[in-house]
């Protein structure tokens, strides 16, 4: 529990009543300028992509002028073209399926594992820890894993994308840390009442751990939504193509004619369609982002070191 209460948002009040010396004013002014600069460094690439996606076909001018195009002159042709395209919608759906099935199987595997690891009196806990850590620290590379998926006959199944990465050791350790923080008295009193360990997990641990399950679930969701490596490796047929692969094809195509799946666009400039597909692929992350940020916690901090 303690883990969860550590806030990462900055709430320390700086003594503002103290009168500032001239050099301190310069220092704080410098900090403000630096942060404003950073704001623009992050915002300009994002803003130029967004405005590019709304650029009308008859736009004449530089990219700089494009960034200041008034919203009432924006065109949604690129979005209409993408949303009316079966290939794009199918890819969106495939990504969604991968994300949902991925998060479900990831939590189904991670929760029991993390819970078992968190029980100090569990005989064999040390062995279990070794079993979980060895594959994490000793990575034999992608080929043995590829051969395994192939032997299982999972090639060209969506499961090949989410199953091999369904357990993230970091997420598991984060969750284990949270479970360990739940007061022992709570568990003991339930045990004295004769509750089985399974019942304990289902009725006491999981309801108390909603925040950590939410945040770990969101982290899994982000990684499954963004995954293109496994999809590239294991999926061949076009109707299984998830969004990142389609997006990559759209971006790599120098002319839309090269790109067979999305061929019927004439209304919007090709650059606008590329930018719009980037923006659409990012939207679920942007929507989930405030929730992810809300669940930042010390536990998830540890995981962020390695990324």
């Amino acid at each position: 529990m303690e883990i969860y209460e550590t806030k990462t948002s900055l709430t320390v009040a700086k003594p503002s009543t103290v009168r500032l010396s001239a050099s301190d004013k310069i220092f704080y002014g410098f900090i403000d300028v630096l942060l404003v600069l950073l704001f623009f460094i992050i915002a300009i690439p994002l803003w130029s992509t967004i405005t590019l996606s709304f650029r009308p076909n008859d736009f004449i001018g530089t990219n700089l002028e494009g960034m200041f195009l008034m919203p009432w002159k924006w065109s949604t042709a690129a979005y209409k073209a993408l949303m009316g395209n079966d290939g794009f919608l199918m890819a969106f759906g495939n990504s969604f399926k991968i994300m949902l099935a991925g998060v479900a199987s990831a939590l189904f595997l991670t929760i029991p594992l993390a819970y078992a690891l968190s029980i100090r009196s569990l005989p064999g806990r040390a062995i279990l820890t070794v079993i979980v850590l060895v594959p994490h620290m000793f990575d034999v590379g992608m080929i043995p894993s590829f051969l395994m998926v192939k032997d299982l006959g999972l090639i060209d199944h969506l499961a090949a994308v989410y199953l091999p990465t369904a357990v993230s050791t970091y997420n598991c350790l984060i969750m284990k840390g949270f479970f360990e923080g739940i007061p022992d008295e709570l568990k003991e009193s339930a045990r004295i009442d004769g509750a089985s360990e399974f019942y304990l997990l289902l009725r006491i641990i999981i309801p108390l751990s909603k925040p950590i399950i939410m945040s770990v679930g969101l982290f899994y969701a982000v990684s499954f939504w963004n995954d293109f490596f496994h999809a590239m490796l294991y999926l061949n047929s076009n109707n299984l193509m998830p969004l990142p692969i389609l997006l990559r094809n759209i971006l790599m195509a120098s002319g839309m004619n090269e790109f067979v799946e999305v061929s019927a666009f004439g209304e919007a400039p090709i650059q606008a369609i590329k930018a719009a597909s980037v923006f659409l692929a990012a939207i679920p992350m942007v929507i989930a982002y405030p929730f992810i940020q809300k669940y930042f916690a010390k536990g998830t901090l540890l995981g962020s070191i390695k990324g």
Binding site: F228, P244, L251, A275, A288
Partner: peptide, 16 residues
């Protein structure tokens, strides 16, 4: 925010 964007999306932004 950019941490949550995939490198495919990043590639799109870098192209712009």
């Amino acid at each position: 925010l950019p941490h949550f964007l995939s490198w495919v999306i990043m590639y799109g932004i870098l192209l712009v």
